[in-house]
């Protein structure tokens, strides 16, 4: 009984080793077949090689395109800036009326623009007038948009402000004096500038020029003149 039990154990051990060995052989065979398959696919099958090359080309090509090609390319008009003899530069802007007026918001006014504008009532905004315009350069080409806020409210003090936004260059924020000169100019101080105007300081003048008979813009035009100076550099 004891020897038959020992034989059984030995046979079981033999069978386990045999199966393990066959398993290793099977795995080896599968691995070899896999290597052959991929070798054939990559190095022999030209069609598949072309396909893989296409994938790589598509990945890197699209990546290069997304990285180097400009997604946004803003249209720029030629700069029309005059350099002042005593430093700084002058640039003139023009707003043709009524053509360039996009919005006029004034409580209780029949002249609100556009038709159907739901402007807050006088109980909220008092006599505050808000306007939005297109802004042109000296050559009469539209280069930006502007907002003008004016109010005579006691609580905040009377003010007239301009915010001129030029998509390709930046924004100018100026506050005007209420009184104008005998020549019709109202002068203001630049409060802030962004991008191209970031480090500049200066003034802005505003004047309304009435239109003449026969002009396409019957009401006239608003003349804006920005006089801007760059900061002084370090003295060597």
């Amino acid at each position: 009984m004891g020897s038959s039990g020992g034989n059984l154990c030995a046979r079981s051990q033999f069978i386990r080793e045999k199966v393990r060995g066959d398993g290793n052989l099977t795995r080896l065979a599968v691995t070899r077949t896999g290597i052959r398959f991929w070798f054939l696919l990559f190095w022999v099958n030209r069609l598949f090689k072309t396909f893989v090359f296409g994938i790589i080309l598509g990945l890197f090509g699209t990546g290069a395109l997304a990285y180097f090609a400009p997604v946004i390319d803003i249209h720029r008009e030629r700069s029309l800036i005059e350099v002042q003899p005593n430093g700084g530069n002058v640039e003139e802007y023009r707003i043709n009326l009524p053509r360039d007026r996009i919005m006029v918001g004034l409580a209780g006014s029949k002249e609100s623009l556009p038709a159907g504008l739901d402007w807050p009532g006088a109980d909220r905004l008092g006599d505050t007038q808000a306007e939005i315009f297109k802004v042109r350069n000296r050559d009469n080409a539209v280069i930006g948009v502007a907002s003008r806020l004016a109010s005579s409210a006691d609580s905040t003090g009377s003010f007239i402000e301009w915010a001129l936004h030029f998509p390709a260059r930046g924004t100018l924020y100026t506050q005007m004096a209420l009184a104008h000169s005998p020549e019709g100019f109202r002068t203001g101080v630049m409060r802030a500038g962004t991008r191209d105007f970031l480090d500049l300081s200066g003034t802005m003048r505003e004047r309304f020029v009435a239109g003449k008979d026969g002009d396409s813009d019957a009401q006239g035009h608003i003349e804006l003149q920005a006089i801007l100076v760059a900061p002084l550099g370090d003295v060597e």
Partner: peptide, 27 residues
């Protein structure tokens, strides 16, 4: 006022816009 910015870089996940708010709060 809002305009798309030339700083836009899709690869970096940046769809940029330059914008300004001109705000009036009565009182």
């Amino acid at each position: 006022f809002s305009s798309p910015s030339e700083q836009t870089r899709i690869v970096h996940g940046e769809a940029m816009a330059n914008s300004v708010w001109h705000i009036y709060l009565p009182e």
